[in-house]
Amino acid sequence: MPPILSVNDLTVTYPDRGEASVVATREVSFHLEPGEILGIVGGVGSGKTTLIRTLSGLLPREARFFSGSATLDPGAEGEIDLIQMRSRHWRRLRRHRLAVFFREVISQWNPLRTVRQHVRETLQLAGRKREARIEADWMPVFYEVGLIEPENLLGRYPHQLPEVVLLRFLIGMALLKGADLWIADEFTSGLDATSEDQILRLLRELAEKRRIAVLLGTPRFGVIERVADRVAVLFEGGVVESGAVLDVLRRPKNRFTRALLDCQPRLGERRHRLTEIDPSARRDAIDTTRGVGE
């Protein structure tokens, strides 16, 4: 199956005011197929957010694309170069095909507007003015994402609803506008374990049923294990290891991945303190991402 998104050797840097530039992502490569969920795992400062913002066109202007490419619908007649794309084309893409979810769900909602206004705006921006007027058309989608009596929730303000409900509405809005590429950055981090599990299961179902490609950034292997098909482990902006989730989790090739897996807290285990990543594993990871010894 042809991929929907292809990223090749993408390097993004931030200028550091006269000093050496900070390399946020370093020669990152992957591809994403329709209906597939790709997990990007890494700790703080590993470059997940920069990668996600690059692919959703939300990077600050001062960030520079040093090298590489990111292409939507590669090989197709109307393939889109995401790196060279102008801001008005980005807007069009985000209105129709792209859905982006950030961490802290509540902060993604304008506190001065009701849920109804948010849904209506999303549809209007997507050019679906008829659907924006007829609320009855929204309901099957909102029921599909697991909302109970959504018609009674539409008039509420975001602060009046729990985060999991808001997240379900966000997912519903992405379905309503017909986005086929979803990019999520730690979007379940504010949820309790049960709600998170429900949302991840929903994400899995929707990806399979509607052939949605999902790029999911998270610092936790537990999330990836439950939902993703493939995983890429990031360290200091570079991909340390990538492959099918089960392969990487069961037989990690890189020492850094093994160390990262050891650090994950597990239910039933009582540790005096969490395992820290060995500095030599970090050095190995740096060597791998920078191509030393290859």
């Binding site: 939300l58 807007r91 985000r94 792209l98 902060s107 993604q108 909602w109 304008n110 921006l125």
Partner: peptide, 14 residues
């Protein structure tokens, strides 16, 4: 840089 403005940009606001 607030969440809702970023989300609005992600929705395609001009």
């Amino acid at each position: 840089s607030s969440g809702d403005v970023l989300a609005a940009r992600a929705l395609g606001y001009s």
